Structure formats: structure tokens, C-alpha cells
Lab assay of single mutants.
Amino acid sequence: EDYYQILGVPRNASQKEIKKAYYQLAKKYHPDTNKDDPKAKEKFSQLAEAYEVLSDEVKRKQYDA
């Protein structure tokens, strides 16, 4: 799945936009606030993985290549 789609940001998003999108979605899908939703944990880990790659310039360049 596309990391940009997961975070809901365009491919040319700035680091600030990526961070903002991640924090909004992380708050929304955090397992502690969605105890009754088994998919929230999965969504949250996808968000974390996408953010880890896109927030790191080197990893992001490799991902975009």
C-alpha cells in the first residue's frame, strides 16, 4: 500500500504536512482510544510505518525511487 495514501498527503508533501497528518491520524486510530475496533491497531501500525519512512529524508528518497 502507498505510504502517501495511508497518511493522506500528496507525494510532494512537506515534512511539516507529513508530521501533521501523522499526528492527526495517530490520535484518531490509537489503540487506546479504539479498544473495541480490532482494525485500529493494524491501521495505527501502518501509519507508524508510513511515517517512519516518509519522515526520514533518506528513507523517503529510497521509497520514492
Rank of each mutant, 00 (worst) to 15 (best):
E1C: 13
E1I: 14
E1F: 15
D2A: 04
D2H: 05
Y3C: 03
Y3L: 10
Y4Q: 00
Q5R: 08
I6C: 06
I6E: 02
I6V: 11
I6Y: 04
L7E: 00
L7K: 00
L7T: 00
G8A: 07
V9H: 00
V9R: 01
V9P: 00
V9L: 08
P10Q: 11
P10E: 12
N12S: 11
A13E: 01
A13H: 01
S14T: 15
S14M: 06
Q15G: 09
K16G: 15
E17L: 09
I18Y: 01
K19E: 15
K19Y: 14
K20C: 11
K20L: 15
K20A: 15
A21E: 03
A21K: 07
Y23C: 07
Y23M: 15
Y23S: 11
Y23Q: 15
Q24H: 14
L25Y: 04
L25G: 05
K27A: 15
K27T: 14
K28N: 08
Y29D: 03
H30L: 09
H30C: 07
P31A: 12
D32I: 11
D32M: 07
T33A: 13
T33H: 12
N34S: 08
N34W: 14
K35I: 10
K35V: 10
D36P: 05
D36Y: 10
D37V: 05
P38N: 09
P38Y: 07
A40N: 09
A40M: 09
A40V: 09
K41G: 10
K41S: 13
E42P: 04
E42K: 11
E42Y: 13
E42I: 14
K43H: 09
K43N: 05
F44Y: 14
F44M: 10
S45V: 11
S45N: 10
S45R: 12
Q46V: 12
A48C: 10
A48Y: 13
E49P: 04
E49R: 14
A50D: 00
A50Y: 01
A50H: 00
A50P: 01
Y51T: 01
E52Y: 10
V53L: 04
V53H: 04
L54P: 00
S55Y: 06
D56M: 02
D56T: 02
D56G: 01
D56N: 06
E57P: 15
E57S: 08
E57Y: 10
E57M: 08
E57K: 07
V58Y: 14
V58S: 10
K59L: 09
R60W: 01
R60S: 01
R60H: 02
K61T: 06
Q62T: 06
Q62N: 10
Y63F: 04
Y63S: 02
Y63K: 02
D64K: 01
D64H: 03
A65G: 09
A65K: 12
A65T: 08
